[in-house]
Amino acid sequence: MKLRFNRKQLCIPYAVFLVFFVLAPLFVILYYAFTDGQGKISFSNFANFFTNTNTLGTLLYSFSLAIVTTLVCLVIAYPTAYILARSNLKKKYVLLLLFILPMWINFTLRITALKEILSLLEGNISAYPFLNSVIGMTYDFMPFMILPLYTSLLKLDKSLLEAASDLGGNKLTVFLRVTLPLSVPGIISGMTMVLLPSMTNYVVLDMLYNSTYIMGSLIGSYFSAYDWNNGSMISLVLLVIIFIVTLVTNRFSDKDSNARGAVL
């Protein structure tokens, strides 16, 4: 007998995975978020989230950390990507590889190395928790910013820049009026890819002795205290926030869905 699969059958492994590891846990989270410890339906967790100053403070701290990280990444990545994409360097793929290479090294190892460097520079690294966390996350997520920017700048038609300067634009105007607007999809895509993980990646903070909670660590702390209900609610709220952010940014990058694609 010959083995034949149609397309539906080929979907089965993924569908099973989806049901057991995505859908089912989601329902479990939903269930815990809207019940109390005794299994009765309750909205107290929801109320807790928005009345507890601790939780709101953590949300705010996470947001500021994520936004600062994203902006720092953008400021460093844009010129780098611009130079890489615009230059005629024969070695530019080597350069690009150097920026991507850290992604291939285990991230705990990277952060440990960074910790050593920072303690060498700062002495007591626990004195600058916020700064160090930003540095750590920037280091960690930089490739996710560079790649989409690089791709969208690389795709930029050179004749558009020539046209802009032909019509009287100097180098700055050409950049501001043509290059920058046309790289917006890349910017949005890069920002999404840095902003969301840096709101939750508490391992970086832990390793760099930043004891302030961010969303990730807050959820962890509830779960380790066996408070499934409040932990689930926070996860759910975070999920909704991420969903909204993605929805809004997708609107911008719709035109240019390729920008997300990496070159390597």
């Binding site: 020539e162 046209a163 032909d166």
Partner: peptide, 11 residues
């Protein structure tokens, strides 16, 4: 001023 081969209009 130039008219480009592939127009080069700003998208």
């Amino acid at each position: 001023n130039t008219v480009f081969q592939k127009y080069a209009l700003f998208p």
